[in-house]
Design a protein around this nucleic acid. Structure first.
Lengths: 185, 185
DNA sequence: ATGAGATATGAAACATATTGCATATACAAT
DNA sequence: ATTGTATATGCAATATGTTTCATATCTCAT
């Protein structure tokens, strides 16, 4: 499970609670993995069973008690081993492309509407990434090297969505040019 | 389930058996969705239960019997409705980026090795896509519009992997320039 | 004061995907 | 002769992910 490795990776920086980790994941502080809180709590209790992490309970009055998870020897070993394993490309599973490639069953107008609506979503995402909300955590990098890795991870997201947008706009232009006028299949 | 919609999309072109569909999916004729044969057979029997498709059994002597699935009214309606629904961006879940962003725990050499190994995999994939193995089915397009959609779906794959490669090579160059020499963290 | 939202955790049910096993025939290559 | 590959289907177990529900306190705004 790669979620567990992502958690071990975070805990290698410093101890976190499940709630902290959820915010790190969802707040898209880094934009390469998403997870729900339920998933994270479950993974953490499994990691504790597997002796990869240790729990420290913090009594709190201002809010419910916290469980802080610490990375221990076995977990660190597992993390390093995983970080060194060569990964293969993830399987592609893109709903939009499924929709797009079967769209000959639709009217021209519906096809154009779909592309335009998806363009809007990608643009929103891109503005969000570029807005700088997500550059704050770069300050917490503990070395130039770590900062380099984080900056480039962020850049990956921006570059990917820019590329997606380029493709979408090219499609829209091409489609309108070739098929507008004949608005029924 | 989007797998079911992809299946309905294929059956809208012409009737297929589960085995045919598996080849269409895995043979990466189109490169935007992957599925195992087990998954496909299960989805087909569920679609039959839901009255979206109908089964026709073909007796064969040269090979085991075939079940050919036909799209019927209800399935066609469901397909058209789904094709028109605006989709949101898929969640990002990229193992390589998880590995990359936590790699400060590794030596320079291991980081470089990881990037180089991933570059090779992306290049293989790209050569594969560009080789033209997957352009044959474009001939089966029944309209200029359908051909346009399929060509652009293929182009999406190529453009995405080219973009990935650009990013990877930029990272590698940047990393070597900034950190080579100090080979321990 | 009343409700919304943040903090904090987790069980249970459901949905989806992967891996391994199982079966059976035909044809081509070694 | 035997191995491998293609055809053709599907069950069972496991892994992974999402959604819904449940609980409990504090703070801030209306």
């Amino acid at each position: 499970m790669s979620l567990k490795h992502a958690i071990l990776g975070f805990l290698n920086m410093k101890p976190f609670s499940g709630y902290d980790l959820w915010k790190l994941f969802n707040g898209s502080v880094n934009n390469y993995w998403s997870a729900t809180h339920t998933q994270i709590y479950k993974a953490l209790s499994e990691l504790a069973e597997e002796k990869m992490v240790e729990v420290e309970v913090i009594q709190q009055e201002s809010a419910p008690n916290k469980k802080i998870y610490h990375l221990v020897g076995l977990g660190k070993k597992e993390l390093i081993a995983w970080l060194k394993t060569p990964l293969s490309l993830p399987p592609v599973r893109d709903k939009f492309l499924v929709q797009f490639s079967f769209s000959d069953a639709l009217d021209d107008r519906d096809i154009i509407r779909n592309i335009e609506s998806y363009i809007k979503r990608v643009e929103e995402k891109l503005n969000n990434l570029k807005s700088g909300h997500y550059t704050d955590y770069l300050k917490f990098a503990r070395s130039k090297r770590e900062k380099f890795l984080w900056e480039n991870t962020l850049k990956h997201g921006i570059q990917s969505y820019e590329n997606e947008l380029r493709w979408l706009k090219g499609c829209l232009r091409g489609f309108k040019k070739s098929f507008t006028g004949s608005d029924k299949k």
